[in-house]
Computed example of a mutant assay.
Amino acid sequence: MTLPELVQGELGDESPVARVHLGGDDELFVTPTRTLVYRAEGLLSDESVEEYPHDAERVAVSESRRKATFSLEYGLDGDRSFSVPRGKLDDVLHPVLAGVLSAAGITEPGETVERTFRFSELTLVVTSARLVKHVGAAVWDADYEEFHYDDVTDLDFEEGSVATSVVLTANGRQERFKAPSDRARDVRETLTDALVTHYDVDSLEEFRALAAAAEGDDEADESVDRTDFGSGPDPLSAEPAEVDAAGDRVEDPSARDGERADDSPAATASAGGDAGGDAVGDAGGTAAATEVRPDPDAATDRGGDAATEGDSFGDTGFEPAEPTDDVAEEVALLRETVERQAEQLERHTELIEQLIEELRRGR
């Protein structure tokens, strides 16, 4: 397929490694260093080509009902963005993100990007040599993680009703992330194929056996170099029997207290206990005699006053207004009219957006 003359002039000595049809005559071309967006001549614009270098520090994607917008941030050079039809999002994201990873030095020359998966705020890029993982609102930035297949010792999948957990063991620790059930099979097959191809085995079971054998050899080598420094001194020199004997010799403090019981202030104070008790008894009797008892008649009077106050609204001659059938019918009719008008406005909005989208050819 021939290239538009305007695109040929912009490419120069480069050749496109990916080409995505955007609708109408609009197309997107990806080279190793940049992305070119070609807009054919239409009712709203003239023929044009926009260039977006791959040396971006951050790549973000936002979606609307009909469009997907790519935003590339270049630090001090500012941000640049372009839009494509929403149905072309995955087709465009894969080559653009592969170019950005290559320009950032994450992927090496000759390393191919097999698949790109985007699940809400999780992005997975499966290459022929590593797995790149990014969590966040952006598709990619400096907060990414990578797991080289040389460091992977196991790969497992735990299926669930809503999502499937991918369990990747690398560098002696497990890394877990979830993929929706409807995309779990694609993730499983893509990641498994890339891993077994890297190790040149036929299945995941052969890879596990190979990894286990390699791990056993490493442990054997470490055991040869291991030096025994002995068990070392005991942390405590006392024997358990000695500790128990020492505990039996603890003097009972109650015996000493008994010897001085007669001389304590409490014993002295007890001498006047009888006289004080009589005085307290008299005071208590006087207090009991002066106890105040509630008047039941007073409570009855207060209750009657409260009842009178509660019924005072009825004495005024006014009664709460109740909605009539005519008012209810009018309200229902108004509600139906508003809902019908809202549906018409929404339909008109959709038609206008569809017309603009068709005229702009996904721009």
Rank of each mutant, 00 (worst) to 15 (best):
L236Q: 06
V20A: 00
D13W: 10
R226P: 08
T112V: 09
G172S: 01
I106L: 04
D297H: 06
A298F: 06
G12E: 03
G285C: 12
H21A: 12
E27S: 13
R183N: 06
R66L: 15
A241K: 10
G247C: 15
A138V: 00
T169R: 14
G24H: 01
A245Q: 12
G105K: 03
L89G: 09
F157H: 02
L351H: 10
G273N: 15
D225V: 10
N171V: 07
P4A: 03
S181Y: 11
D311C: 12
G317R: 00
G362T: 00
V135R: 15
F157I: 01
E14K: 07
D305R: 15
N171Y: 12
H148W: 08
R293Y: 08
Y144D: 06
S15L: 10
G75P: 05
F147C: 01
S223M: 06
L334C: 05
S120T: 12
E47Y: 03
G23K: 04
G172V: 01
L122K: 05
G272K: 01
V126D: 04
E73Y: 14
G281K: 10
T324A: 10
V187S: 05
V96A: 03
T227Q: 13
D325R: 11
D200W: 01
L22T: 00
E145W: 10
F70Q: 03
D13A: 11
V59I: 03
G277D: 15
T116C: 13
D90M: 07
S15T: 08
D193W: 06
G160D: 03
E5C: 08
A246M: 14
D91W: 13
A40S: 07
D154M: 06
D150R: 08
A214R: 13
D186V: 02
V17F: 10
Q174S: 12
D55I: 00
Y144W: 06
A163F: 10
T316S: 07
D248M: 11
T192M: 05
L76T: 06
G42L: 04
T190D: 05
F117I: 00
K178I: 07
Y74K: 04
T112Q: 14
G105E: 05
E10W: 05
P85T: 02
G314N: 15
Y74S: 04
P16M: 02
K88S: 07
G362W: 05
D228G: 11
V92C: 04
S62G: 12
V113G: 02
P109A: 03
L101H: 02
A142W: 14
K88D: 02
R256M: 11
T127R: 02
D257N: 14
E114W: 08
F318L: 08
A267F: 06
A18Y: 01
A103D: 09
Q354F: 12
V7N: 01
A142E: 13
V30T: 04
H198V: 00
